[in-house]
Write a protein that binds this DNA or RNA. Structure first.
Ligand SMILES: [Zn+2]
Ligand SMILES: [Zn+2]
Ligand SMILES: [Zn+2]
Ligand SMILES: [Zn+2]
Lengths: 159, 159
DNA sequence: TACATAAGCGCTACATCATAACACCCATAC
DNA sequence: GTATGGGTGTTATGATGTAGCGCTTATGTA
């Protein structure tokens, strides 16, 4: 279950399961999965891919919902803050978390051609990084790993 | 914009050494370290922290040099492409490479308060990431690790 | 009930980051 | 010479992200 993005799978149930789990987690922790937040999560889940904030706005607009930038950014902030999504810094885009609820160092395999994103699990930050941090008195809060390259679909097309 | 250079090293020679090495590397590889590129590298070396493209432009402007955005971005593209600098995606900013010429996975410890950046060495991408990549046929080109937190100077102020 | 407080939302306006595209210069190569 | 290609200077524009205001709604308190 390390990754889902490049596999074939039952995507409809993959989405509904993730939504249910998010709802449950919010209920249990006094968080509000408002319609806007829920819809943005749904959009992210629909693609297993990095989606830009303005792409999300485009979808919301088609739904007839409010679609000014802060709408998307506020929902995304909520989702990222509570672990339902991650920001892919290299793409200035967002992706639904593949391991919500589990403590993990997010690690992404980002296809340079099609922007598909696979999320791998890395249990802890590499030792050499932690050693350096300790040596200089740096206190790590959050670690992200981003690898770029070519996915199985796109690699052949490049050769 | 205080200069937060390390107190613990000879920063002037740290800069000039890095510049000399960059010059030598360019000579040996048929690359042109033009005045603009050299000056931008110098600016990055001067701070041991992430510097935004528009901050660099501001310095160039004070030097009386051309200072439209493409000037900075083109120089930065060159420096990043040839390993003299890295882009810190989380900050949309740039930092001189601390290990030029050595093959390495760049790994950064980024202070959330003062933007100070320490570059650690990670020899290879974590095994679990490589395993996932192999399992799904993903071909990794480039891996970057960004850890955010508080540096030794800023951690006490937060507690 | 009445009221205070806080969170969320809709919106305008703006700030920040990055690139497209074109004209010009100049070195090297045929 | 003159074609080619890299680097530069410039204008204009695109893409990404935020501050802040007024409004509504949920929730706690008396
Ligand atoms: Zn799915
Ligand atoms: Zn791909
Ligand atoms: Zn130094
Ligand atoms: Zn700091």
């Amino acid at each position: 279950m390390a990754t889902v993005a490049f596999d074939t799978h039952d995507h409809a149930s993959c989405i509904s399961t993730a939504l249910s789990r998010a709802e449950a987690h919010c209920d249990q922790n006094g968080l509000k999965l408002t319609p806007a937040r829920r819809r943005v999560l749904e959009i992210l889940l629909h693609e297993h891919r990095a989606v830009g904030a303005y792409d999300i706005l485009e979808v919301l607009r088609q739904d007839g919902l409010a679609a000014q930038p802060p709408v998307a950014y506020r929902a995304l902030d909520f989702l990222v803050k509570h672990g339902f999504a991650h920001k892919i810094e290299r793409l200035s885009a967002f992706v639904a978390c593949a391991h919500p609820g589990e403590k993990h160092v997010p690690a992404f395999l980002i296809c340079e051609t099609c922007d598909h994103v696979a999320e791998a699990t890395v249990e802890v930050a590499p030792k050499s990084l932690c050693d350096t941090a300790k040596a200089i008195g740096f206190e790590i809060n959050r670690t992200v790993l981003e690898a770029t390259g070519l996915c199985a679909k796109c690699a052949p097309a490049k050769s």
